[in-house]
């Protein structure tokens, strides 16, 4: 199982802090979120900040990043205001 945690706007908007999913890649996680909540498409979620075990998925294989049992995925919206 993969633990997915939401932060920022995603947490506020979806009203959920975390979920556990069966997924083999980040792309599959996005698809599950789209199907379950309907508020964000998998395509939109590609623009979020995604940390897989603390590493930004842009440094990995982006949404093609493979996931293994026990991995943690953080899905964050960016804060850049001052």
């Amino acid at each position: 199982m993969i633990k997915v945690e939401f932060f920022g706007l995603y947490r506020l908007d979806l009203g959920v802090a975390e979920m556990t999913v069966e997924a083999a890649s980040v792309k599959e996680v996005f698809e599950i979120i789209e199907k379950q909540y309907g508020k964000y498409t998998a395509e939109e979620l590609k623009n979020s900040i995604v940390l897989v075990n603390g590493i930004n998925f842009l440094k990995l294989k982006k949404s093609r990043t493979k996931l293994q049992k026990g991995d943690t995925v953080f899905i964050m919206s960016p804060a850049s205001g001052g």
Binding site: F7, G8, L9, R11, L12, S77, P78, A79, S80, G81, G82
Partner: peptide, 10 residues
């Protein structure tokens, strides 16, 4: 570093 957006920040 700090940053804010809407009702949260980092």
């Amino acid at each position: 570093h700090a940053a804010i957006n809407n009702l949260y920040g980092q």
